[in-house]
C-alpha cells in the first residue's frame, strides 16, 4: 500500500487511511475503512448510489477525493441503526417495500436522511425533486417516496 496517511472520521470512529491521492472517498470508505455499505454504481456522478453525509450535507462520494474529507465528519449507512434498532427510515423502507435488489438503497437512505436534516421544512414536492437525484433500476420510485413520507411526514403541498 502506498500513498499518504490521513484520518477519516466516519460514524464517530477515526480510521487511519493510507491511500494514494487519487482514491475517491467512496473507495476509501469501502477498501480502507471496511465500510462496504456505501455502494458505487457509475463512478461518474450520475447515479447517486454512493451518497454519504459529509459535515451534515449529502454528497456523492465518487466525486470527492478521500483526502478532501480529512477533518470532516462523515456518516454512512452503517451509522444509521442504533445497535439492533433500525433508523425509522430503514424500517419505513422495509414496511413500504422500497427496495428490491437493494443496490441503490444505502444511497437513497443517506440522501433522504441528510436532505431532511439539512432542510427539515421541505415540502412533499421538494422531497420528490430530491428523490429524483438518485437512480433506482428496480422499484419505480413510488415505494421509495412512500417510505420517505412515512418516516418524515410532510404537510400536504397546497393546491395551486
Amino acid at each position: 500500500m502506498s500513498g499518504q496517511t490521513f484520518q477519516l472520521h466516519v460514524n464517530g470512529t477515526s480510521y487511519a487511511v493510507t491511500a494514494p491521492d487519487r482514491k475517491t472517498l467512496g473507495d476509501a470508505l469501502r477498501e480502507d475503512c471496511g465500510l462496504t455499505g456505501t455502494h458505487l454504481g457509475c463512478e461518474q456522478g450520475v447515479c447517486g448510489t454512493c451518497t454519504v453525509i459529509v459535515d451534515g450535507r449529502p454528497v456523492r462520494s465518487c466525486l470527492m477525493f478521500a483526502r478532501q474529507a480529512e477533518g470532516a465528519q462523515i456518516r454512512t449507512v452503517e451509522g444509521l441503526a442504533q445497535g439492533e434498532r433500525l433508523h425509522p427510515l430503514q424500517q419505513a423502507f422495509i414496511d413500504a417495500h422500497a427496495l428490491q435488489c437493494g443496490f441503490c438503497t444505502p444511497g437513497f437512505l443517506m440522501l433522504i436522511v441528510g436532505a431532511l436534516e439539512q432542510d427539515p421544512d421541505m415540502t412533499e414536492d421538494e422531497l420528490a425533486e430530491v428523490l429524483s437525484s438518485n437512480l433506482c433500476r428496480c422499484t419505480g420510485y413510488a415505494a421509495i417516496a412512500k417510505a420517505a413520507l412515512a418516516a418524515y411526514p410532510r404537510p400536504a403541498t397546497p393546491a395551486e
Binding site: T51, R60, M64, S133
Partner: peptide
C-alpha cells in the same frame, strides 16, 4: 444538477 451536487 441534483441535491448532492449543489452541496459541492
Amino acid at each position: 444538477a441534483h441535491y448532492q451536487i449543489r452541496n459541492r
